[in-house]
């Protein structure tokens, strides 16, 4: 229901600490980061953008865990296909 796009913080605006310049694939916009309080956002952090506000910081550790799961399934699948090929050759 709600379009959320990942972007990376380029700069926190010095005169307005609630605003950060955020880059989405080479496109930049000022995004309000006032809803992120837990740990101070800084340049280089990835955030999720919705209607001009950052809703959360993207957790790289969690992202990697999910990707590892997907790659694990991919590996198992390839192994199976490989095994299938070999069994046909025999």
């Amino acid at each position: 229901m709600c379009l959320g796009i990942p972007g990376v913080i380029v700069e926190i605006l010095p005169d307005q600490p609630d605003l950060a310049t955020v880059d989405v694939s080479g496109v930049r916009r000022a995004i309000n980061i006032g809803l992120i309080t837990e740990d101070e956002p800084e340049p280089g952090d990835w955030i999720l953008i919705h209607v001009g506000f950052a809703l959360s910081k993207i957790d790289e550790v969690e992202a990697k865990a999910a990707m590892d799961f997907l790659e694990g399934i991919g590996q198992a699948y390839e192994d199976e296909i490989e095994a299938l090929k070999e069994s046909r050759i025999e």
Binding site: L3, V24, S25, G26, V27
Partner: peptide, 12 residues
């Protein structure tokens, strides 16, 4: 181009 994609993703 990446910038066109970025703007389009941002605006849906």
């Amino acid at each position: 181009r990446p910038e066109v994609r970025g703007a389009c993703e941002l605006l849906g």
